[in-house]
Nucleic acid binder design. Structure first.
Lengths: 356, 356
DNA sequence: GCATGTATCCGAATCGTTACGGTCAACCGG
DNA sequence: CCGGTTGACCGTAACGATTCGGATACATGC
C-alpha cells in the first residue's frame, strides 16, 4: 500500500508534483509526468479515498435512496443510475428505506426517523449528492432534504420544492382511460387506488386522470376505485371482489401492470375471457406484461433515471456533461416529464355489443 | 458544520476527550461525557467520515458486488444485506458488474477489466470488506480478490479458495428430478443448461444432479439439456423447441422458475395441459411461482444473504456479533450450505397411464 | 547587466479524526 | 512519608492526500 510520498521519493519530486502529475493538471513537465506515472504504476499506488476527500472536500460518491430494490421500477432505475455514475467515476452508496419504517406514530410523528440515518450518518459527509427514488415523503422530510444544502434530485411523483424527473401521472390516467373510451367502453372501473392513502400520489393522480377522462365522455359510468397495493396479490383480490359483486364492467384501468396481471390471472381462473368479456389495461410495461399480452402505458424508467442522473452530474460540474441551462428549473421543481406511450396488446378490445 | 474542535472548545476539554466521550470509550468521567454529548448535539456535530477513516483506517462501508439488480435473487439478497449492514452501522457501496462487461477477448483475455474498477478505484481504500453476489469468475479474478487482503465472502456457487455461502446445486438437481421420478415419470428433459457454458456453474451442477438422479433409476430416458439463459423468454423458446420436436417427455426439470414459467406459458398456448400431459418443476420459489401454481425447489435467498453478512461482520469484530468459530472455515471455502426444500404445487403430478 | 516572465517544482499548512505516550492528582498499603 | 497504582485527561504526532504561496532556473527584452 504505497502512499503518495513513496511515489514522490521514488521519483525524486515532491508530493505536490506527484498529485498534480497523476491528476493530469497542467504545469508539470511532460518527462516528469511520465516518470511519476511510471513510478506510481510500478508501486501499485492507489490514492486513499479518505485522504482525498478530507483534503479536497469531495467524496466522489453519490447517495441513492430507495424504498425498495426487489421491484421492477426501482431495480431498473438503480441499474441505470449506477452504470452512468460509474462511468463518470462516482461510487454509489445504496440506502434502502422501506416506507413502513418511516411512519412512526406517537411523539415522533412528523419527525421522520431519517434524521439520524441521513443527516447524521450519511449525507453530510459521505456523499457529494443524492438521488431519491420515488418515495412518499412528508413535509418534514422534504424540509430536511432541502436544508441539507447538497445537490439532490428525485425520480418519481412531484414533491413540491424538490427537483423532479418523472412522468405525468394524471396524464397517464387519462391516456389509459381514453384508450378504453376510444374502443367504445362506457362501463369502467379503476383498480389500484385506495382513497385513504394520501402520501403516495401516483395512484391518486392516475385515478384523477381516470375520472377526468370519464367526465369528458358522455354516458360513461364509473364505480369507486378499488385496491390498495400495487401488487399481483392485490390485483387478484380486487378481481375476486369484482367477480363477487357481479355485473362486471367492460373495462378495467389498472394502476400498474402487476395489479393488472393479478386481475388477468383471476379472470382467467373464473373463466372470464379477456378481452372478449372484459378489457384490461395496465401501466409500466413491466417485463411480464408481454407474457400476459397486456395492453399498457409504457413507463420509461431508464430514461427517467438517466435524465435525473445527468442533471445531477451537471450540477456537480462533471467534465463531459454540459452545464445546466439556467432556465431549466421550473418553479414547481419539475425538471423533466417524460411522455408516456400507449402500447396496445391483446388485453383490450372493443366491448361485445351485448355487453355495452 | 461543526468539527470536533468546536465541540472541544465549547466543552473546555481536548479533542481527544471529545472523541473518546462520543464513542463511548471508557476512561472518561460520566459528567464530562454528558457535557460533551450535549455540546455535540447542540452544535449539530457530525464526525467527518473521511477524517475518521483516514485516522482509524476503517471506513464503515462494505462493498457489494453484483452482476444484476433487476433479478429476483439479486434484488432480494441486496435488500437483506443492506438492512443488516445498516443495523450495524455499515454503509453499502453498490458495484454492479454485468457479466457481459467482463468477457474481454484479445490480449486482455484472462485479465479481467475488474482491476481498474475494483482494485484501483474501490476496494483498496473505500471499503472494509466485500460481499460478492453470485457471479461467474475466472481464475484471474479469484486471485485478484484473494490478493486484496480484505475480508470477503461470496454468495452463490462455490469458488475454490473463496469463502462461500450458498446452496448445493447438485443436490437441488437431484431433489427436483427425484420428485418427478417418485411420481412415476421416466421420460424427462432438463431445461436451462447450455453445455457450452463453463463459467457459470449452477446450471451445470443442477444438470449433473439431474443426470445422477436418473442414473440411479431404472428405465429412465433422458435427452440432452436445452436452453441457455435462465429467463422467461428462453423458457418459451425451449418449450416451442420441444413442441416442434414432437414426442414430448412427461416431465421437465427447469433450472429456474423463470424458465419454468416461460415453459408453462408456451405449453398453455399450445394447448398442452399441465400437469396432465406434462409435469414441470422449477427452482427458486420466485414470487411469480405461486401465481403459476408451479412446483419448485425453494432457494432460501434471505437466509444465505443473512448468513454471509453475519459471517463478514464477525470477521470485522463487530460488537453484537459472536466471533467466528475457529473451525468453521471448511478447506473448500464453504461456510454454509443451506438445505433446499421441495414445494409441491399444481404443476407436477403422476404421468397419465397412456403416456408413461 | 538587470529587471521581468514563464515554466516547474517545492514546502508547509490544512482537512478532521484517532491513537499513543505522558501528565497530574488522588489514593493506597507498608 | 513515600513509591506505586489508578483514573481522568491532555498534547500531539500520525493518517494521506490537496492547495497555495513561494522558490528556482532559465530565457527574454531593453
Amino acid at each position: 500500500m504505497a502512499s503518495i510520498e513513496d511515489v514522490a521519493r521514488a521519483t525524486g519530486v515532491s508530493t505536490a508534483t506527484v498529485s498534480r502529475a497523476l491528476r493530469g493538471l497542467s504545469s508539470v513537465a511532460e518527462p516528469t509526468r511520465v516518470r511519476v506515472q511510471d513510478a506510481a504504476m510500478e508501486l501499485g499506488y492507489v490514492p486513499s479515498a479518505a485522504a482525498v476527500s478530507l483534503a479536497s472536500g469531495r467524496t466522489r460518491a453519490i447517495g441513492l435512496i430507495t424504498p425498495h430494490v426487489a421491484k421492477w421500477f426501482f431495480s431498473v432505475a438503480i441499474e441505470t443510475i449506477e452504470a452512468i455514475l460509474r462511468t463518470y467515476g462516482y461510487d454509489v452508496l445504496l440506502i434502502i428505506m422501506p416506507p413502513g419504517q418511516r411512519a412512526s406514530p406517537g411523539p415522533m410523528a412528523g419527525v421522520p426517523p431519517w434524521r439520524p440515518q441521513l443527516e447524521t450518518e450519511l449525507l453530510r459527509k459521505r456523499v457529494d449528492a443524492t438521488i431519491v427514488l420515488s418515495l412518499p415523503m412528508v413535509a418534514a422530510e422534504v424540509t430536511l432534504l432541502q436544508g441539507l444544502g447538497q445537490e439532490l434530485v428525485c425520480i418519481g411523483p412531484v414533491v413540491p420544492g424538490l427537483p423532479i424527473v418523472g412522468i405525468d401521472d394524471h396524464a397517464v390516467g387519462v391516456q389509459a382511460t381514453q384508450h378504453l373510451l376510444d374502443l367504445g367502453h362506457r362501463r369502467l372501473r379503476f383498480v389500484g387506488h385506495d382513497q385513504q392513502e394520501v402520501d403516495w400520489t401516483p395512484p391518486r393522480e392516475r385515478y384523477r386522470g381516470f375520472c377526468d377522462a370519464l367526465a369528458g365522455s358522455v354516458g360513461a359510468e364509473v364505480g369507486p376505485p378499488i385496491g390498495s397495493d400495487l401488487t399481483v396479490a392485490e390485483g387478484r383480490r380486487c378481481a375476486r371482489q369484482l367477480l363477487a359483486e357481479g355485473d362486471l364492467p367492460t373495462g378495467l384501468v389498472c394502476c400498474s401492470d402487476e395489479v393488472a396481471i393479478g386481475v388477468l390471472h383471476e379472470m382467467h381462473l373464473a373463466g372470464v375471457r379477456v378481452p372478449q368479456q372484459i378489457s384490461v389495461i395496465g401501466v409500466d410495461d413491466h417485463p411480464h406484461a408481454e407474457l400476459h399480452d397486456l395492453t399498457t402505458i409504457v413507463n420509461p424508467v431508464g430514461e427517467q433515471a438517466e435524465a435525473a442522473t445527468r442533471w445531477l452530474l451537471a450540477g456537480l460540474a462533471t467534465p463531459g456533461i454540459p452545464p445546466r441551462p439556467v432556465d431549466e428549473l421550473h418553479p414547481t421543481g419539475v425538471i423533466q416529464y417524460f411522455a408516456t406511450e400507449l402500447l396496445v396488446r391483446g388485453s383490450t378490445a372493443a366491448p361485445a355489443v351485448d355487453a355495452s
